[in-house]
Nucleic acid binder design. Structure first.
Length: 593
RNA sequence: CGGGGCGUGGCUCAGCCUGGUAGAGCGCUCGGUUCGGGACCGAGAGGUCGGAGGUUCGAAUCCUCUCGCCCCGACCA
């Protein structure tokens, strides 16, 4: 492919509304162009990467017997009404009417449609299991699209759905897909982790997310440094920390209110408790209190949470514990009027709401807390004794880096940031029951199928690859998803001898099946071509110029290592072949790490 | 939706406060000199200043409304 013919326009400057690296580099490299908020053109270079990744996904899924099909983007409301999601799905579901005033939506996902396909065609245990997938454009009217392809409104997704005769078979498929996903992301050449996750609102039994590790990732992940336990921080089990002051009760301090004017920060609060023997208390002596408003459907109720002052609340755990769909902090003004004091002095003791305490407060006494009186804190608080509507000790805090692992002996959590690029999910019978997707078993009895669903964000993964693989000069593509494999630079297109050599090298490489972009553009200085090549970031750069040819050599540069080899033009093919072997070998060795 | 910011040639931005001929750099076209890390000279093309209304002799600039975009918080691949 001649670069002079390619639809590409590189930018020297960073476009104004691009603020994550992948978006900046993709726009500068002429891969994407924004059409509207969260909606992009995939220009030829980007599409080449996208297609390559899709092909990897196809190959690995087909190895496991999955079948590809393609469902429509536009879906009728009836199916969504049948599953009940027409009402429950938020405004991300873009609903609209056709000319006959019938309700439709743009598909954000395809459980309803695929279930409708299967219930009409599969009705015997002999036809199960069945695993169907598609690679298709989705539309979710995100509240706030951002980060380029990482959170667009329109995006390409691989979504797969499996159907099973029983739970055990659905579990088997779950782990088969788990393994397939590991193969897929290993082949791409990215560092990733499968992560235990919260099953959230979709309502399933268990789930893993696949995260590409990148400092810019939106999700926090904790991973044990000793065992395999890796989970989204929303879900990570926090170890129960023993109350360290059990054997040294603070005798000199009265169970009483302390005057603490103007003190709100936890550190200041703990420091304020002093007497002849105590110049302040440690942070684990202080407690903090949150008032949340939980809701489920139309119902809403308030709950309290007490934590050690140096711990952070985990609202996902609390939400799951109380069986709510949503959880938000009670507005400050309301909490203040309820407690009868200013924010900063609110405490749990007299407040008439069901109150939960974090497990690390079990056995704790002589804690401090707000006294519900302006300018005062209370000393001597003990949750299980002093709370009027005490609901027990539970794991309700955010686990933190350095916490002891709950799954093994001696391990500790390490923190990572990740970009969620895939998810495997055991759905159960939620959709098969509501949409009567049933089959007859060996006994002739009718049962709902057990389902699983499996997603991969195709365009997001391509962006995540760049987030993880770039340097100050541009993208550093892993070989398997690079738009082109070799960037052939003709540094002297005006010189017929140089051009002849470049043409010959291009033909040799393409005959061997290499994907070559030949920069044959005239009137550009070599420096300009180098800069463009760095920006585009194909794995290998082959340079042909009059200076090298004077010594009888052309040059090959590895984009990642910057290693440079010089050799006669006739060796070009063999050298490129060897370089590919080396790069692919390193990739296989590093797979998944 | 709440809070903050921005809309001026293809791209990055200045000009706006204090109203008076629409600018620079990059990119693009033509000619010439250059040619191994974003060369130089000369000549050009290209903008109803997001849109509508208002104030004014006169609006990119002031006022009102509106649309779009970006960032920070609640959703998700």
């Amino acid at each position: 492919m001649k670069q002079s013919r390619l639809l590409i326009h590189t930018l020297r400057e960073v476009p104004r509304d691009a603020d994550v690296v992948s978006q900046q580099l993709m726009m500068r490299a002429g891969m994407i162009q924004k059409v509207a908020a969260g909606i992009y053109d995939y220009l030829p270079l980007a599409l080449r990467s996208i297609r390559k990744f899709e092909q990897i996904v196809r190959e690995e899924l087909e190895r496991d017997g999955c079948q590809e099909l393609l469902m429509p983007t536009v879906q009728p409301a009836e199916l969504w009404q049948e599953s009940g999601r027409w009402q429950f799905y938020g405004p991300e579901l873009r609903r609209f009417k056709d000319r006959k005033e019938a309700d439709f939506c743009l598909g954000p996902t395809h459980e309803e449609v695929v279930t409708d396909i299967v219930r009409g065609r599969v009705n015997s245990y002999k036809q199960l299991p069945m695993n169907l997938f598609q690679i298709q454009t989705k539309f979710r009217d995100e509240i706030r699209p951002r980060f380029g392809l990482m959170r667009g409104r329109e995006f390409i997704m691989k979504d797969g759905y499996s159907f099973h005769a029983d739970d055990a078979d659905a579990d088997r498929e779950y782990w088969a897909m788990f393994a397939a996903y590991k193969r897929i992301f290993s082949r791409v050449g990215v560092k990733f982790r499968p992560v235990e996750a919260d099953s959230g609102a979709i309502g399933g039994s268990f789930t893993h997310e696949f995260h590409v590790l990148a400092g810019s990732g939106e999700d926090a992940i904790l991973s044990c440094d000793r065992c395999e336990y890796t989970s989204n921080i929303e879900k990570t089990e926090a170890p129960r920390l023993p109350y360290p002051h059990a054997h040294e009760p603070v005798l000199g301090l009265q169970h009483a209110h302390f005057h603490t004017p103007g003190i709100i920060a936890m550190e200041e609060q703990a420091r304020a408790f002093r007497d002849a023997e105590h110049d302040g208390l440690p942070l684990d002596h202080a407690s903090k209190y949150y008032l949340f408003r939980a809701s489920k459907g139309e119902a809403s109720w308030d709950i309290g949470l007490v934590l050690r002052s140096d711990h952070e609340p985990n609202t996902v755990k609390l939400k799951n514990l109380v069986g709510a769909d949503f959880l938000e902090l009670v507005p400050v003004e309301e909490a203040e009027s309820r407690a009868g004091t200013r924010s900063g002095f609110i405490g749990p003791v007299e407040i008439e709401v069901p109150t939960y305490a974090d497990a690390s407060l079990e056995g704790a006494f002589n804690l401090t807390c707000g006294a519900n009186r302006d300018g005062y804190h209370h000393f001597g608080f003990r949750p299980d004794r002093d709370l009027k509507h005490f609901k027990g000790f539970h794991d309700l805090r955010l686990a933190a880096e350095g916490d002891a692992c709950t799954r093994c002996e001696g391990g500790h959590y390490q923190a990572f940031r990740g970009i969620e690029v895939g998810q495997v999910f055991k759905l159960g019978t939620k959709y098969s029951k509501s949409m009567s997707c049933t089959f007859l078993d060996k006994e002739g009895k009718e049962n709902p199928m057990v389902m699983g669903c499996y997603g991969i964000g195709i365009t997001r993964t391509v962006a995540a690859v760049i987030e993880q693989n770039h340097d100050a000069d541009g993208i550093v593509w892993p070989w398997p998803v690079a738009p082109f494999e070799v960037h052939l630079l003709n540094l002297d297109p005006g010189n017929p001898e140089v051009s002849a050599v470049a043409e010959q090298v291009e033909r040799d490489l393409e005959a061997e099946g290499f994907e070559v972009l030949h920069d044959d553009r005239e009137g550009l200085s070599p420096g300009a071509k180098f800069k463009d090549a760095d920006l585009l970031g194909f794995p290998l750069r082959l340079m042909v110029g009059s200076k090298g040819l004077k010594d009888g050599v052309i040059e090959l540069k590895d984009r990642r290592t910057k290693e440079l080899e010089k050799f006669p033009p006739g060796e070009g093919l063999a050298r490129v072949r060897a370089a590919r072997e080396r790069i692919m070998g390193e990739l296989a060795a590093a797979a998944g790490r």
